[in-house]
Design a protein around this nucleic acid. Structure first.
Lengths: 114, 114
DNA sequence: TACTTTATAGTAAGTTCTTGCGGCAAAGTA
DNA sequence: TACTTTGCCGCAAGAACTTACTATAAAGTA
């Protein structure tokens, strides 16, 4: 094998990397989790539910998730605006995965700060 | 309920957020995945295996994972240096989770770029 | 002698991510 | 009339994350 040659090429097409890129991060999993538990939520409800997020961030993340077809956005043409967010069928399939992550995290990451 | 009061407080202590913070990101899941599949690996092997990572990044991520007790580091006092990385028992318990993420990602995130 | 090897640590520079602030629309309420 | 409401957007500024580059040890090899 030549010098500097890469044996694998995991980073770019690794499904896990893609996942982290699209569903991971600081806010997206929380948004999905909330919608999973609460069904339909309005923008302001999500804003209040998520500690520390700014409206700017929230709308950005929602847009990303909508583009990935994880969430569904329904906008009512009223004033003041009313927009409802909920999970798509695809988004709902994240349920087990998130539960798994949550469980692992509770077991392994919580409480080792002492 | 008072104005601006938060109904929940998910972001800070949400296990999923903690997980993403500690095991998520661009490189960590890939490192864990590689160690899961290859057992023990040396620094250079990981470097070659991970497309696009810099050595600096790699050593930082490895250090983080070691602090979380996900990976184990064995350093041999020889010159040139030799350091071996492998998963701890705790790290190994990530196996199913990562497989699940990988599966979901393959099914749902791959190939919708057309 | 000069170069190569390995696993990092600094440092500076560059990028991307997040925040904060202000603003808009048009109806309802005080 | 003046203020409130909702779901954003745009811009500037700050924070965080990444990269690139240099350096090191001490033995082995050309």
């Amino acid at each position: 094998m030549k010098k500097d040659e890469k044996k694998y090429d995991n980073a770019d097409e690794c499904p896990i990397t893609i996942f982290m890129d699209k569903i991971g991060g600081k806010w997206k999993p929380v948004i999905v989790w909330l919608l999973l538990n609460n069904g339909t939520m309005r923008f302001n409800e999500l804003d209040k539910a998520i500690n520390g997020i700014t409206q700017k961030m929230l709308s950005q993340q929602l847009k990303d998730l909508e583009l990935e077809n994880i969430i569904k956005r329904i906008s009512y043409p009223v004033i003041p605006p009313k927009v409802e967010y909920s999970l798509t069928d695809k988004g709902k399939t994240l349920s087990e995965l998130l539960k798994g992550i949550m469980q692992w995290s509770k077991t392994n990451l919580q409480g080792n700060y002492q």
